[in-house]
Design a binder for these strands. Structure first.
Lengths: 197, 197
DNA sequence: TCGCGCTGTACGTTATCACATACATATGTA
DNA sequence: TACATATGTATGTGATAACGTACAGCGCGA
């Protein structure tokens, strides 16, 4: 219902298995011997008549001298996503003098989001009262393209110059401020949170 | 008997699924809703009491906003070679015409590393024969500062211009090449794969 | 203390995966 | 022609994956 319908979930390794097997000049019984999976089962998998368990799929991959993730990746097109400079939405400015763009595509499987922020003199990326926090456990890396910029985080204050790089917990309240007379810019990377167990 | 015993075939995604689910702060029923897989099934999979079919595993991965190959790759982490981080962090050039800096501090708990690469005309960040892959499950985001740059990955070829942004699996063989007559530069972010606990 | 809502798990049933066997077709060999 | 050996597929049976339901445990507010 929810996510499941919006995402391509179809797994159809059958044709790939058959192609690989024939490329190695193996019969179904040959591969059955190598993989420990019965020939009729292999036949059904190749024709897509059944969805094998991970255990079976792993043995089939092993028989083809592949890791299962490799076998599956062959059927997952679009692993590489390119976002062209022209086709990005410019993010609305939450504050006057602040504009930003999200540089990365919002696709599943992504664990990092990269954004570029431009600050007019005196502007900031957010305010002390603003809610826009990041997911718990996430980390942020910011590189200053043009400074100076002041990073306010959790009551602390860090003065950054062009080329400086700051790393911090993105789930703490924070914002960047441009104190100087010139325009400032920075790149921010937010890597998805994963709680340490 | 044949190959099957010589290759590690064990698939145990259970702990990984549980870690990811808890990191996303989802209950079994939450993930059931997102994935279309029943909660008891998820429980059994997490505890390794059953080997799900590819169809089910794919839906679980989708519910976790991962591709199945990515989810599986997290479990194949043990076999992979580590990058020579020591040499690279100094910012030396591995190839002529290629210089880079690691911008982030090498601190524990870091999940993203940011580096800036400069390529002389004709230079590349590595070669087709070079092994330096990133950790399994890691993702890379590259922003082109000055192009053109060609991204070679897994046999594919992507032409990028200044301002373009590419995202891909960092554990696939890849390198950047500068085909133009001018100096090229890019920023690369590698977000860590999920570590075993 | 009582419930309410939530968590994860045990139960029993149904669907289907995976096997061994048997079959149909196609090659080649005597 | 007959036999032999290979291919991939149809069949029926036991094992198990996957479901809906129901349960024990926890924290919380009335």
């Amino acid at each position: 219902m929810a996510l499941i319908d919006e995402i391509e979930t179809q797994i159809h390794i059958g044709p790939r298995v058959r192609a690989l097997r024939e490329a190695m000049d193996l019969s179904l019984r040959d591969l059955a011997e190598r993989s420990g999976v019965s020939a009729p089962m292999l036949s059904q998998v190749e024709r897509g008549e059944t969805s094998p368990t991970l255990a079976i799929a792993g043995r089939i991959a092993a028989g083809l001298e592949l890791r299962l993730s490799q076998l599956l990746r062959l059927d997952e097109a679009g692993t590489v996503t390119v976002v062209r400079a022209g086709e990005r939405r410019r993010g609305g400015s939450m504050r006057r003098g602040h504009t930003f763009e999200i540089l990365t595509a919002p696709l599943p499987g992504q664990r990092a989001e990269l954004s570029r922020h431009v600050l007019a003199p005196g502007a900031s990326t957010g305010g002390p009262g603003d809610p826009p926090m990041h997911e718990p456990g996430s980390r942020e890396v910011a590189v200053i393209e043009a400074g100076p910029v002041v990073l306010h985080i959790d009551g602390e204050r860090y003065e950054l110059a062009g080329g400086d790089c700051a790393t911090f917990d993105a789930d703490l309240p924070h914002h960047f401020e441009n104190p100087g007379p010139d325009e400032a810019a920075l790149l921010a990377v937010v890597s998805a949170g994963l709680r340490r167990s």
